[in-house]
């Protein structure tokens, strides 16, 4: 059974159609990369899956259970989905440790000591153990984004949604975040990532989906979608990326 199934998703913002009958399936342990121009609906899709946006049509299933049903408690769904944002969105008034333990303590009602032990172990594993007591404004962008990933992982999510997590980073800091995502993949995490890093999508993704005007126009193994695209829109998009020296 797929982890995530989206059927016919539609989302409008003030008359502008952002998702236009979008279908997407993500299997267990699969990494799916969403590519496409800005405004093609990548971020909106991720926000809809996490129920941060209300759908205008279509259904979303997580592990075979429809979560787009209004009777489903969104808070219960969200604690099973980890989300990481382009702008990190760490809580600036909390230390790194408190950022990571907030959800385990408040949502999962874990004891402080237990939550902190788990958080320190996760932080140690990604080389941020020394930053546990620092505040976010003392960290580099790359460190902040890695903390944001750890914060999402602390919920032991079934699915991770990564929304252009390297787009706000200086080029020399992109690598450390991508390395962390690579580790997540080898640990078997199911992920959907919206990205502009074509090289990374080719390396880490099991499937690449090209979005255009709110639909998945082309999907398949990275070598095929990025190497021999069949759809003219995909070719056009990739040509622009290559011309800009980004692939």
């Amino acid at each position: 059974m797929p982890v995530l199934t989206c059927r016919g998703l539609r989302k409008e913002f003030g008359g502008q159609v952002v998702l236009d009958g979008l279908d997407l399936t993500v299997e267990d342990h699969q990494v799916v990369a969403l590519i496409g121009a800005s405004g093609s609906g990548k971020s909106t899709l991720l926000r809809c899956v996490n129920l941060l946006e209300e759908l205008d049509d279509g259904t979303i299933e997580l592990d075979g259970v429809e979560i787009s049903d209004p009777r489903v408690d969104p808070d219960r769904v969200r604690r099973r989905i980890g989300m990481v944002f382009q702008s990190y969105n760490l809580f600036p008034h909390l230390s790194v440790l408190d950022n990571v333990t907030l959800a385990p303590r408040r949502v999962h009602r874990r004891e402080r000591a237990e939550a902190e032990a788990q958080a320190r172990e996760l932080l140690d594993r990604v080389g941020l153990g020394g930053k546990a007591d620092a505040y976010p404004d003392r960290l580099s962008g790359g460190q902040q984004q890695r903390v944001a990933i750890v914060r999402a992982l602390a919920n032991s999510p079934r699915l991770m949604l990564l929304d252009e997590v390297t787009s706000a980073l200086d080029p020399e800091l992109v690598g450390e975040v991508l390395a962390m995502i690579r580790d997540l993949k080898s640990a078997g995490m199911t992920m959907v990532l919206a990205t502009h890093e074509m090289g990374f999508a080719r390396e880490v993704a099991d499937r690449v989906c090209f979005l255009d005007a709110g639909r998945v126009v082309e999907a398949g193994p990275p070598a095929q979608v990025l190497g021999e695209p069949t759809h003219p829109r995909t070719r056009q998009f990739l040509k622009r990326i290559i011309d800009a020296g980004r692939l």
Partner: peptide
């Protein structure tokens, strides 16, 4: 709003988001 989105995406309820974030 991105702070609210981050808090809600962790599974915090509206009240918990208000109180802690």
């Amino acid at each position: 709003p991105s702070q609210l989105a981050a808090a809600r995406s962790l599974g915090l309820t509206y009240r918990q988001t208000m109180r802690h974030v």
